[in-house]
């Protein structure tokens, strides 16, 4: 059981950092390496780590699968909706220039929203897939055979 305690302590320190890092990657992607795809994956990894250590049932309480399924559709909707919004504002589909007065401002807002949609879809897709796979294995422990090296 001491190993389990160690895992719990270490993951409790790590998970907030991973989530913070995912948010940094998401919103700092314009300036350094990063963006919606990477951030979504890292965000999902934090929840998967949580589910591996504390069990699937606890993880499902933290973020229910209904929520991830809604987020899954919402991300694509945000992306497509941005395109429709630019059309309504007089531009072409996904033409971010009309979103603000200046070209750079419009592009910045457009990229920000679109990357957010991507991140939302990717992270919730990964969590959903993981939930589906682990829901079959065992409700408490994610792996029965695989955890023995």
């Amino acid at each position: 059981m001491t190993e389990k305690t160690l895992l719990i302590v270490v993951s409790k320190i790590l998970i907030p950092l991973i989530l913070l890092f995912a948010l940094y990657v998401q919103f700092h992607g314009d300036f350094g390496p990063g963006g919606g795809f990477q951030a979504g994956v890292i965000f999902a990894v934090a929840f998967i780590l949580y589910a591996l250590i504390f069990g699937i049932r606890t993880a499902r309480k933290v973020i229910p699968s209904a929520v991830t399924r809604t987020m899954l559709a919402l991300g694509v909707l945000i992306y497509g909706g941005t395109g429709v919004a630019t059309m309504l504002m007089g531009g072409e589909y996904l033409d971010y220039n009309v979103l603000a007065d200046t070209v750079k401002g419009g592009q910045h807002i457009g990229i920000f929203i679109v990357e957010f949609g991507v991140g939302l879809t990717v992270s919730s897709a990964m969590i959903t897939i993981f939930y589906t796979f682990s829901g079959h294995v065992n409700a408490e422990l994610p792996f029965r055979k695989g955890d023995k090296p």
């Binding site: 300036f31 963006g35 992306y79 996904l94 592009q107 990229i111 679109v114 990357e115």
Partner: peptide, 23 residues
């Protein structure tokens, strides 16, 4: 486009349709 990271600007702006498809 603006952002210093060219990969981000190509991904989200120049190739916006492509990324919509990938999503």
């Amino acid at each position: 486009v603006g952002p210093p990271n060219i990969v981000t600007s190509v991904l989200a702006s120049y190739r916006g349709y492509d990324t919509l498809g990938e999503t």
